[in-house]
Amino acid sequence: MAQLNLEDLVAIMRDCAGEDEHVNLDGDILDTLFYDLGYDSLALLQTTGRIEQEFDIVLDEDGITEAETPRALLALVNDCLAQAA
């Protein structure tokens, strides 16, 4: 079963929205707010849009809004993948 891990997510975020020069995305960021990682709502829409394309899933819209950290977003995506499987 397909799973999204942090490394994949960071790669997608870098590609979709670049990275803030003052942030180390390779550090311990699972519980850091996307806002503090330099990502705004637009960056997250682009990122989640890409995830939906790549995994051919549809994420819950309210869930996306509420997923404020990588851990929360990974959980949202992986739950969705588990249900789709």
């Binding site: 870098r14 929205a17 670049g18 020069e21 682009q46």
Partner: peptide, 8 residues
């Protein structure tokens, strides 16, 4: 340019 600006 800052990396954040390039994809958009």
């Amino acid at each position: 340019l800052p990396s954040r600006l390039v994809p958009q």
